[in-house]
Write a protein that binds this DNA or RNA. Structure first.
Lengths: 188, 188
DNA sequence: CAATCACCGAGGCAAATTGCCACACCCCTC
DNA sequence: GAGGGGTGTGGCAATTTGCCTCGGTGATTG
């Protein structure tokens, strides 16, 4: 089944790209990496096989969404997964309309990425989230995303979140559960 | 352009259905209403024209997602909009894969619904939400959704949110902005 | 009809959290 | 070595939260 998948990872944060690529590589996959849209386009013209693509939606100047169609044209069977620091439902719908297979928010672990690439989003369709998340959980996830979107900069994340830097610090220290670092998750 | 659209509204909360239908009716549209899946299926076999369908994902026993395909089979050009009290990105992706045109979370006003039906979700693709919402806004929206999912029952919503009922009460009273009632929004 | 039940609204108070200022460090650049 | 960001930490007043308590209302039930 898992016949050495050929994957393409497009992520503008080079450190995160490296770590994610390594984590994926450990999963019996062959990973090509690009950091921007132009490189991606030239890369896909050279590749001979591509089973899955993982695109960061936020590529500095470029938009990962615009890569979906070129990839699908060259590799019609390639499954495209969009990743984004701060994702919205509207963006997920847009990506899917453009041909994306699935859509995840960062931080996403290698296993989550592979699972999202291989799952059939249409069939798992009935997961009525009967359990509305608690406010705490929602806040925590949003904090993580925002932190990620600001490269871990606490000061700027706090400003973006509209809370005091001191408060964000204290909150981050309190949380017992989960990885303290998105890096840890991203790397595995 | 807006040539008296023929719409179908499927919503199990009869009160909300009524109000939404009226609000839509005021917008130069003809609205048929159903409250469950079975009625919907028999209804679409009778209808002669259908331009848009608004489906509540959470229909008691039934799942709005399962109505997408039957509707599309009978009316291939009909645009289907999913509505859900508590929506997730995964659910939005699933709905889109099944053919849904767009996906909204409640409470949604009549104008939002019409806009979502007529917009082209794929083209508005680049709305990179550069502005991660503040924690306050996020919390407020989540509170509203949860409240909606629990039919406005403050006690149960508070429990679901994991906060004290008294706290939820106080928060609801504080918010200056926005409608105090999802009803108001739903109705217009 | 009275009892009960499930809600909402509100007061009060101790405990926790937040906002904010201040200061010590680090690392980097000019 | 003098800034300019960023982080970590302490302290303190102001706000918010959790929790308990009451009173009121509408629907259901005996």
């Amino acid at each position: 089944m898992t016949h050495t998948l050929h994957l393409l990872l497009v992520e503008d944060d080079e450190l995160l790209a490296e770590q994610t690529a390594q984590a994926l590589g450990r999963r019996n996959t062959h990973v090509s990496v690009a950091h921007d849209a132009a490189t991606t386009l030239s890369l896909i013209s050279e590749l001979e096989q591509l089973d899955g693509a993982v695109l960061d939606q936020n590529l500095g100047q470029d938009n990962g969404l615009d890569l979906i169609i070129p990839i699908q044209q060259r590799f019609p069977h390639c499954k495209v997964l969009l990743l984004t620091g701060y994702g919205s439902i509207a963006a997920a719908v847009a990506a899917t309309h453009r041909g994306a297979h699935n859509y995840l928010t960062k931080p996403a672990s290698a296993s989550e990425i592979l699972e999202a690439l291989q799952a059939d989003p249409a069939s798992l369709g009935s997961p009525l989230p009967a359990t509305p998340p608690s406010l705490q959980r929602l806040e925590w996830e949003h904090i993580q995303r925002t932190l990620d979107a600001h490269d871990g900069n606490i000061s700027r994340a706090a400003e973006a979140l509209g809370i005091h830097r001191r408060t964000l610090q204290r909150r981050l220290k309190k949380r017992p559960s989960a990885s303290q670092y998105q890096r840890e998750k991203g790397a595995d």
